[in-house]
């Protein structure tokens, strides 16, 4: 004698908790997100075809505008102060790479002075930021 189930139950994935999971993830992302607001200086970066992508977490930004003003971490510094500031930053992060966000019309002498300061601080890994847009158009 065969037994038959009176009613046929359909299998389904419960989706009732989807909203709860979404809210938990939302809370996680709200708490962990960090909005950095580094203003630096307004610069017009040069373009270069040989550009490669840098590791953002290791970069320490040095802004130099066309008037030769130097800014490190939103702080205006003189080129002769670069060595002291960078020594301190290098002690905090030995793998630091100094990213030059320099205006294309800045006199090279200022950049050279900053690089001399970096050499004194032994921060020898540098990264010359270039413009992401319109690749192939040279300076």
């Amino acid at each position: 004698m065969a037994f038959r189930r009176a009613t046929k139950k359909e299998a389904f994935i419960p989706t009732d908790s989807t909203g709860d999971i979404a809210f938990l993830l939302l809370i996680f992302f709200i708490l962990t997100v960090v909005f950095t607001n580094e203003t630096g200086l307004v610069v017009s970066l040069p373009r270069a075809d040989a550009s490669e992508e840098g590791i953002r977490d290791m970069l320490s930004n040095v802004f130099i505008n066309e008037k030769g003003m130097v800014s490190i971490d939103d702080m205006i510094v003189r080129p002769d102060q670069v060595a002291a500031v960078m020594s301190q930053k290098l002690a905090e992060n030995p793998f630091m790479i100094v990213a030059f966000k320099t205006d294309k019309e800045t006199p090279y002498g200022v950049v050279s002075d900053v690089m001399e300061g970096l050499k004194e601080a032994n921060a020898v890994k540098v990264f010359f930021n270039t413009d992401l847009e319109l690749p192939g158009v040279a300076y």
Binding site: L25, L26, V33, F35, A48, S51, E52, E53, N122, K125
Partner: peptide
């Protein structure tokens, strides 16, 4: 909201030319 908070921190990639300066 979740998508907003995941996408917002994504920034433009940093591109440039890397060099190693000679030590002093």
């Amino acid at each position: 909201l979740l998508i907003f908070f995941i996408v917002m921190p994504m920034k433009r990639p940093e591109v440039g030319l890397s060099m190693v300066l000679p030590a002093k």
